[in-house]
Design a protein around this nucleic acid. Structure first.
Lengths: 170, 170
DNA sequence: ATTGAAATAGCGTCAAT
DNA sequence: ATTGACGCTATTTCAAT
């Protein structure tokens, strides 16, 4: 048993496994380059980091295994794909039971239109980033999946007018 | 002149160019597959969409040109990369001058640590998603780049405990 | 762990439909 | 616009350091 918990189903999630190996400059260059262009070729990455291509292949595999690179994903235009209404919904919980948090965290990301889910400190507990096909679909989503939950005390919806990615290197 | 504006420098940004071409099922499959795995090979994508590889190459180029796929980026572990403190900062403006919005929108994404920037409706105007090396660096960021701005009336910082991506297809 | 070289797999061009 | 085949490039495996 590696990282188990006595209570039924309750798993405390620490980002990857504990013996966090040190990353050198090569790793950082690879991660950063791939963050900027997720389709950068192995040869490009190798050149950027100043290593052999075969080394690069191995390094990349390692970064994925370690959970330093958790995935690479295309960013798509929601309007073009039929979900022109984007919103951020702040959710406040009624209780503070750990189980409620875990259920929401597990279930919400599976729902169509959910882009991101933040668990945050402060007056609100969660922030849900969604893309909906219409304003009425957005309303239904909030009512059915957020306000409708017994553990949710309040939900407040803000429309997203604009959404841009950071450009600077990490 | 296609989409110009009389005022100096003031550009109204409509997501891509207006004659938005219709996307068929093939386009949607490609976008969706690439959204799930940004490093999917051309052959894989072609198979998923049921088209020839050469057609796939052309389709992909088209999707990028049209702005349907705006980029593909690796998701990295901020803790491993030395920025363990993640936060969402709500920013309220004092005035409502368009120029102020545009400046913030242009400048903030360039600052190191800024991950995303949302322009939202409601009591707050912007939501800034940042990753900092430490809590004190976070404080400095908010003071120097947000509260410090003359056009910013108020900034409220929430720590991000957890951040997950949506899993369902668009 | 890193490398270069050899084998494998993937890609884009093009002529044809 | 889509296709399959061909030539070219990129990637991975592997033996050696």
């Amino acid at each position: 048993m590696v990282e188990a918990n006595a209570d039924e189903g309750t798993v405390t999630r620490h980002t990857p496994q504990d013996p966090r190996p040190t990353l050198d400059e090569v790793d950082r260059v690879l991660a950063e380059t791939l963050r900027r262009d997720g389709r950068a070729t192995n040869a490009t990455l190798a050149k950027a980091a100043g290593i052999a291509e075969s080394t690069c292949t191995a390094r990349l595999r390692r970064l994925q295994t370690l959970g330093v690179v958790t995935g690479v994903h295309a960013v798509v235009d929601h309007v073009a794909l039929g979900r022109p209404v984007e919103a951020l919904v702040s959710v406040r919980f009624s209780g503070q039971r750990r189980r409620d948090f875990e259920r929401l965290r597990a279930e919400l990301p599976m729902l169509p239109g959910v882009l991101q889910l933040f668990h945050v400190s402060g007056a609100n507990d969660y922030l849900v980033h969604v893309a909906a096909r219409s304003t009425s679909e957005l309303r239904d989503f909030v009512l059915d999946h957020l306000t409708g939950r017994p553990d949710v005390a309040h939900a407040e919806t803000s429309l997203v007018f604009d959404h841009v990615r950071g450009q600077a290197p990490l």
